[in-house]
């Protein structure tokens, strides 16, 4: 059902009920990008992999998305971007995460993102970039691997 790989909650953190509570992901669209088919497909893929997906709708600013991610206490912000404006938007997203002391939240990017931008996005704080042709299992394992490395918090 849910992922079982990671369970390092630190000292004295024993689970009473749900050792592996579902990974929570916020699926977000940033800026003036109306392509929402991919975001909805990704939301379903993650749901079917046992994750809890908060969807926030279109045309959000990085600041909106980080505020929502903090309140929802998600493990991952998954951004779907097809507009070509990924460089400034992810830079701003990284800045908002630092400002709100939310750098523990992973950032995963998908959509139309040319490979030559990967390094710059990584510098902005993007933890993983999933190529557009990726099959659903790569999307799921990419996210699971990030959480497994960190452990639950």
């Amino acid at each position: 059902m849910t992922d079982s790989s990671s369970n390092s909650q630190g000292d004295g953190a024993r689970a009473r009920i749900d050792v592996n509570s579902p990974i929570r992901v916020l699926v977000a669209k940033l800026g003036l990008d109306g392509h929402d088919r991919g975001a909805k497909v990704v939301a379903r893929i993650l749901r079917d992999a046992g994750m809890e997906v908060v969807y926030t709708g279109l045309y959000k600013s990085p600041n909106d998305v980080v505020s929502a991610a903090v309140q929802e206490d998600v493990d991952v912000i998954g951004v779907s971007l097809l507009s070509g404006s990924h460089l400034p938007l992810f830079q701003e997203l990284g800045r908002c995460l630092r400002e709100k002391k939310a750098e523990h939240i992973f950032v995963v990017a998908g959509g139309v993102i040319p490979e030559h931008d990967y390094a710059a996005l990584s510098d902005s704080g993007v933890d993983a970039i999933v190529p557009q042709e990726a099959r659903s299992d790569l999307i799921v394992t990419t996210i699971r691997n990030l959480i497994a490395e960190r452990g639950r918090i």
């Binding site: 059902m1 749901r47 994750m51 997906v53 969807y55 709708g57 929502a68 929802e72």
Partner: peptide, 16 residues
């Protein structure tokens, strides 16, 4: 979802 245990939480779209 009773099948996967996952969920799509969509209420926030209207409230954000």
């Amino acid at each position: 979802s009773p099948f996967s245990g996952g969920a799509i939480l969509g209420d926030r779209v209207r409230m954000s």
